[in-house]
Design a protein around this nucleic acid. Structure first.
Lengths: 236, 236
DNA sequence: TAGTGGTCTAGACCACGCC
DNA sequence: GCGTGGTCTAGACCACTAG
């Protein structure tokens, strides 16, 4: 994508021109001319830099550098939102957040809601048999959405919605191996529901964590990455 | 902004046309025509809906609804609840999520980022003296945003953004009492930064929790509600 | 092959900061 | 008033999906 190229060129340009923290960049229109690219695309690149906290735009004034060159160099390598990073971020976020929500949910769930969870698991099972990635992801989302709803906390529901986006990225790998999905992940979900039914929040949370640990280990095996790093850093 | 208007109209249109989960929306070009708006703007609105997990775009195929009507209604109602509920949800969510993120941040923060945290605290202090609610809330948001950025995890940053919305609701109460804000909350932030500097994630997380506990207790005193219920249910 | 989302472009107008 | 970032537009081409 050109915006990513623009982003790299922009960083290169900043380095060349020896811009420092606090300096003002050329205007968006000038940058567009300098880098031979449309202003819209430049803006998209700047937006990304702003998200990363490297740059800050002030209306009517200009775009300013807010991060030192050293800090920029430091996280330059850590930011390509490539597939590896997305998988890692997604798994880590789920590992950190989901158990907390499930622990809370276990204390507040009704019998009826637990039946809904069971129904979800049935859908999941069907999707696995039919090898329907989309249905599997949907069932997984629904499962987690229900758990979040049990907390009766609107904010937590929204957070779960956020966590529920972008999971295809690893389900895609899981669904390739029936045995793993069935005996490990799927069985894990069943155990979680049982723990929730017993209103044992701590156990449910622990099971949720273990499920993600298992997922990480399996992914590490079939890919050449070490997802298990996540666990050491964020141990609860 | 027109994209926000477009977003509302889009939701309205979906409701009118009785689109359901799994249905395909008209193409972006058609929607542009229907709503009388450029495709770029429509795309921006769709991007937001995609982030919220309401919709999912498939290249070469179309844009599909991924959330049931009930879930959408739930989402819509997630903000009109009464003030009590909003405060409770907000505090509870922060109590559950923030410590986990801070623990992770403590293990990955750079010296420079810690300086930024300190700067934030200075802004906060100034805002308190000037009794500027808006600046105080901004500084609080920035403080938490920085902490989330230290995790280097895009998802967690987004989650923190979500947590950062709607906090005016209790800052409004806090700012009325200088002594409390200064000696309890503000001092708590300073301690958190120190713990982060020592890379002591567990302590930082514990301090973050205690800060929210203190906030709950103080709110319970000045209002006739028992916010401390939150703590028993979600103890870690 | 026709239609879709993904990306990029050039140009326009607005709201705001600064001189 | 001038230059800035913020927003919107119409149109183009590409890569992909599906019939």
């Amino acid at each position: 994508m050109k915006k990513n190229v623009a982003l790299q060129e922009l960083l290169e340009y900043v380095k060349e021109q020896k811009f420092k923290k606090g300096d003002r960049l050329p205007s968006e229109r000038d940058l567009a001319g300098i880098l031979g690219i449309s202003r819209t695309t430049i803006r998209e690149a700047l937006r990304i830099l702003e998200e990363r906290g490297i740059v800050s735009a002030r209306r009517g004034s200009g775009v300013y550098i807010t991060k030192s060159a050293e800090a920029m160099a430091l996280d330059e390598n850590s930011y390509p939102p490539d597939e590896e990073t997305r998988i890692k971020d997604q798994l880590e976020a789920r590992f950190m957040i989901t158990p907390v929500i499930i622990r809370c949910a276990a204390g507040r769930a009704t019998e009826e809601e637990i039946s809904s969870l069971r129904n979800c698991i049935v859908s999941m099972s069907r999707a696995i048999v039919a090898r329907e990635l989309r249905q599997l992801v949907d069932a997984d989302c629904e499962f987690h959405r229900l758990l979040a709803a049990m907390t009766r906390n609107h904010k937590l529901i929204k957070i779960m919605d956020l966590l529920n986006t972008g999971n295809e990225i690893f389900w895609e790998y899981f669904i390739k191996n029936d045995e793993f999905v069935n005996n490990v992940i799927f069985a894990g979900f069943v155990e979680i529901v049982n723990a929730v039914k017993r209103k044992n929040g701590d156990e449910a949370a622990e099971l949720a964590k273990r499920n993600i640990v298992n997922a990480c280990e399996w992914l590490s095996r079939i890919k050449d990455t070490h997802y298990s790093d996540i666990l050491g850093i964020t141990k609860n």
